[in-house]
Simulated assay, not measured.
Amino acid sequence: MFPVSSHIYYPPPLDYRSLLTKLLNRCVRYIVPMYVVGWLLYLFALNTVSPDNNMLLAMRDGVLFGNWYWYLKALAIFSLLSVPIMHGNRIWIDVICVFIYYALFGVLWKYGGEIGANLCMEHATCYFPFFSLGLLTRKYSRLQKLMKSEALLAISIVGYVSLFFFTCDIHIVNTLSNRFMLPVCAIVVAFNTLSKMDHKQSKILQGLEYFGNNSLQVYLFHYFFVLFVNIHVMWKWGMDCNNNLFIHLCVLMMSIIIAALSVSVGELLKYSKYIGKLIYGK
């Protein structure tokens, strides 16, 4: 969520209407592919893989409400609820808004029943803190300076290594460690590492930037290829061989290939004005 928030941030305009109009247009670009590509993926899987395929069974349960592409739904919700944060200019008010939204997501997740499930409130609760961190960091220069400070970087490196091996019998402590503190430390380290690298000289960084700029296409179309890859068999083989490094490298290479194929499909579809509008909503 953290890097994505920079794509939906807008400098505060003169009035709420202008900001809301921009965000509504962006939400259309999330919701349209969420349903269109979601149904295309389901029909594609229905006619290409066996009826007991795990992905097909999972898609069948959520395709009606677009829950398979939950990330886009959550991003649309985050974008609309961020209007007061984007338009305001006081950090303490923004932080209060973040806590109110987070509490609302948590209540809907635990007690919202089908409504909470179809609004993907579990995912919203898990990822909204990182979205907010990215949004506030992009908005306030003070937070950017804090993120780039050497002291915080050192704390984050030590914290990440320590938390990576940390285990606790208390469930909530493990959850807080693995789902919040560990990712935050990783974000700080990645933010500092990437900001200090020379974008023009680093081919790796240029590749990451390219996939980042086309992340929507990767997210939308990678499932069409993952359908035919049995990750569980590969992972089991790696565990049996006791060669975790090799299996991680295999999965990494496969991910890069699938990402490249996904971007290629997305770019190909953009050549058609009408298909592009149908899929991307623009």
Rank of each mutant, 00 (worst) to 15 (best):
L43M: 10
G62I: 00
V36N: 06
A45Q: 05
L64N: 08
L23I: 05
V63H: 08
P51L: 14
F65K: 02
P51I: 10
P33S: 02
R26G: 15
L40H: 01
N54M: 12
V63W: 04
V63D: 09
L40W: 08
G62F: 00
V63E: 10
N67A: 04
F44C: 07
V28C: 01
D52I: 13
N53T: 11
L46G: 01
V37G: 02
Y30D: 02
D61V: 12
V36D: 06
N67F: 00
N25I: 08
Y30W: 10
G62A: 03
L64S: 09
Y30Q: 13
L24T: 10
T21A: 13
S50L: 14
M55S: 09
G66A: 04
V49A: 07
L23Q: 11
L64C: 03
V32I: 15
K22H: 12
P33R: 04
R29G: 06
V32Q: 00
S50M: 12
D52Q: 15
N25S: 12
N67T: 08
A45M: 08
G38S: 08
L43T: 01
A45E: 05
K22P: 00
W39I: 03
I31E: 09
D61R: 13
L46I: 01
V49R: 11
N67S: 07
F44E: 06
C27S: 14
N67K: 05
N47D: 06
M55T: 15
M59E: 13
K22L: 14
C27Y: 06
W39Q: 02
F65M: 11
L46Q: 10
Y35G: 06
L56V: 10
L41K: 07
D61F: 06
L40C: 15
V28R: 15
W39H: 10
L64E: 09
L41T: 05
V49D: 05
F65W: 13
N25W: 11
V63S: 05
D52Y: 09
V49G: 10
L41W: 06
G38R: 07
L23F: 04
A58L: 13
M34S: 09
P51H: 10
Y35V: 10
L24H: 00
V36R: 00
K22Q: 13
V37Y: 04
N25M: 12
D52K: 14
A45F: 00
V32C: 03
V32M: 05
R29A: 13
A45H: 04
S50F: 09
G66W: 02
L56Y: 13
D61I: 05
N54I: 11
L24Y: 03
N47W: 10
P33F: 01
C27L: 04
P51N: 12
D61K: 15
R60Q: 15
C27H: 04
R29K: 15
Y42K: 07
G62W: 00
N47H: 11
L24G: 12
F65V: 04
T48L: 11
A45G: 14
R29C: 13
G62M: 01
V28K: 15
F65R: 00
N47T: 14
M34K: 09
N54P: 03
V49M: 10
M34P: 00
L23C: 02
A45S: 13
Y35F: 15
D52G: 03
K22R: 15
L64H: 05
T48G: 11
T21N: 14
V36E: 04
V37K: 02
T48S: 15
G38T: 06
I31F: 11
F65G: 00
L43E: 05
G66K: 00
F44P: 08
L43R: 03
D52E: 15
L23P: 00
